[in-house]
């Protein structure tokens, strides 16, 4: 008996857990990377800055689908065995973190110099100025961009179906093997992602209206 639309939909949603797990695990890599490297790029000069920029550009400017395959196939060769979940979370997370690091740096650079000077005039140390004055303002101003990056990360997790993880995309392909109903299956897959991503996009728009970030012209997705 052919599967009903509802059964197809439920079948795909069985992969939602993996999709969300890769996203959350990816954030574990993305957030620290974005903060550390964004701040480092802002603070460093000369050779140090070149090195920091090099690392950021490697993760940000590479084609993420190739990065995923490279690390999936190459790490075992050099003796590092990580689970497919960890490799995926690391690659997708650091790619997203590379993008977010640019928002962190841009947010810090966009602050008026007077903020730093006012902090110094109050006798605050440089780390204190960064943590108490600069970063909070920069992160709030750039928060809509971070929401965008989160959505990009969530969508990029569809790639993990190519390295055997059973996310929603993988489930759709599995169902397609037993059930010839591509219209229903792939429409359901698109809808499943839409249902997850769209509310985040709306939240991002709400945030953007509240912070009216200077220099960010994103529109929520």
């Amino acid at each position: 008996m052919p599967m009903s639309l509802f059964e197809i939909w439920l079948g795909i949603l069985q992969g939602l857990g993996t999709t969300l797990a890769v996203t959350a695990y990816g954030l574990v890599f993305a957030v620290p990377f974005a903060l550390v490297f964004g701040v480092a790029q802002y603070l460093t000069r000369g050779v140090a800055r070149l090195l920091v920029t090099g690392v950021i550009e490697f993760w940000r400017s590479s084609a993420v689908i190739i990065l995923l395959f490279v690390f999936y196939y190459a790490l075992p060769v050099v003796g590092v065995t990580l689970s497919a979940l960890t490799v995926s979370a690391m690659v997708l997370g650091l790619n997203a973190g590379g993008y977010a690091s640019q928002a962190v740096r841009a947010g810090l650079q966009a602050l008026p110099a007077g903020q730093k000077e006012a902090g110094a005039a109050l006798g605050l140390s440089r780390p204190a100025i960064l943590l108490l004055i600069e970063l909070p303002q920069a992160l709030i101003a750039m928060s809509p961009t971070f929401v965008n990056t989160l959505i990009q990360l969530l969508k990029a997790t569809a790639l993990v179906s190519l390295v055997t993880l059973t996310d929603m995309t993988f489930r759709a392909k599995e169902i397609a093997q037993v059930e010839y109903n591509p219209v229903a299956i792939y429409t359901a897959l698109l809808l499943a992602f839409f249902v997850v991503c769209y509310p985040i996009a709306l939240a991002g728009r709400w945030l953007e209206a509240r912070v009216a970030a200077p220099g960010s012209r994103s529109s929520g997705i």
């Binding site: 959505i151 969508k155 995309t169 219209v183 429409t187 698109l190 991503c197």
Partner: peptide
């Protein structure tokens, strides 16, 4: 536009690849 931006490229490629022949 919102729908397109809320859905992954890979899903769109599968959609077009398998649905159009249908």
């Amino acid at each position: 536009i919102d729908f397109i931006r809320s859905t992954p490229l890979l899903a769109w490629l599968y959609f077009l690849y398998f649905v159009l022949p249908f």
